[in-house]
Write a protein that binds this DNA or RNA. Sequence first.
DNA 1: TCGTTAATGTTCGAAAATGTTCTTTTTTGT
DNA 2: ACAAAAAAGAACATTTTCGAACATTAACGA
Lengths: 251, 251
Amino acid sequence: MRLRDERHKRILQMIEEKLFLKVSEAAEMLGVTEMTIRRDFKYLENQGLITRIHGGAKKKTKDQYIELSHTEKKALNIKEKKYVAEKAAKLIENNDTIFIGPGTTTEFIYDYIDVSSLNVITNSISIFNRFQENKNFNVILIGGRLRERTKTFVGYFTSKWIRDIKVQKAFIGTNGIDGDQITTADEEEGAIQRIVLKNSNYRYIITDSTKFGVCAFQKICNVNEVTAIITDNKIPVEYKNFYEEICKIIN
Amino acid sequence: MRLRDERHKRILQMIEEKLFLKVSEAAEMLGVTEMTIRRDFKYLENQGLITRIHGGAKKKTKDQYIELSHTEKKALNIKEKKYVAEKAAKLIENNDTIFIGPGTTTEFIYDYIDVSSLNVITNSISIFNRFQENKNFNVILIGGRLRERTKTFVGYFTSKWIRDIKVQKAFIGTNGIDGDQITTADEEEGAIQRIVLKNSNYRYIITDSTKFGVCAFQKICNVNEVTAIITDNKIPVEYKNFYEEICKIIN
DNA sequence: TCGTTAATGTTCGAAAATGTTCTTTTTTGT
DNA sequence: ACAAAAAAGAACATTTTCGAACATTAACGA
């Protein structure tokens, strides 16, 4: 006979490699009753480690998002992202109160900021951590429910709380700019961004040039509502001409 | 070298390579009674070297999510803290909405919770991280300004936002219980705790028995306002008698 | 040597883990 | 849709482990 935790560990191993494990199988392999295995499965399910189904248990399927994961995305177009981030950072002045939304580009903004005092609001853990390093900055994290994929807080409470915040400048990353619409891939994050834009004097859209002509799932706002679009200089000239009619393009 | 130390060394070796070790196995191998092995395990656990489980012990999984200043504190009275945490966890029922405040004791509560669905609210990063692991729990972090030392959110916004939250049960750690007052060491955290207690149906104070007779800097509330004080069984009998007149003592 | 203290062993009631039995629910085959 | 078969779950029984209290043994200095 073995220890309970040891059994749990082996159950997890088996499920990991076989994806599915029958109660009867497990009982025989581990030399205990099926009842015990059921109790083990129940415990492991409560821990959020497996999914129980009639007759056994299976590996927990993580929700598949269309978006690339945080770390994967980061690798792409670093040079362009840094360029854009630097342009954005130049717009930030001493004693500003700014919002910085989640995004792989916006994360670089911190590196180029050159002010001695600043108030920063964000719902992104990565952004928060970066700015938190600097003791001269007053940083506020908007909490709520965590969207694991992007390490960003979203949902009812985040929306509610973000309404309390008024900022001078908002920097919002985006997944697509098409026609007169600015769009993002995630519904929940989009909801937050819309509120932020309403509560900001200056509204900056941060995007690399590959996002022009891309239409993502969720509309954030119209192009004519933003103060400027900040992008890199690989933006095709036809897009540049088109959007310069509507709003400012910084690149 | 003493016999006892020799045994301890061998126990650690065995656990290191096998990850698990039964009391009975160890007893046979080392030629001593199971009682002795239990005493050894107990000692080694208090040294923070292994984790004891029913029937044996296992290798300690290092918690990487807690920062240094915390881990130091944590080494003290582990046994009592776990005991208290377990008592607290038993009060948590399926589908509850609970608040868990920052603290080295409250962090252990997670380990003893046995429900399949739960809503958790906290302003502590450590607590948030722990509960976030479990996909069956709905976890809300209250943001704001970060108090680095305890990795806890405090300040104007935290207070404001926490007012939006109503919970069934609040678990609040404390630094001192003296006379009819419950006190804490930090003014900003105290302010948050006061609000939480107002918005909770059941108010549980989590504390180890060494805090009785200690008066910290900031008053949180009066003893008669709380539902129960959860503490360990080393509480001096005169305190126990005194406080049992005013509120419930769980230990 | 003795007396003192620390370590280990023993006993036993309580608690935890596991097993058993029987009933209810789900699945499956027709 | 139905009945038979398989699995799950509730309640109770059994076994194992724990830990407190006390007894015994070993260790060591005066």
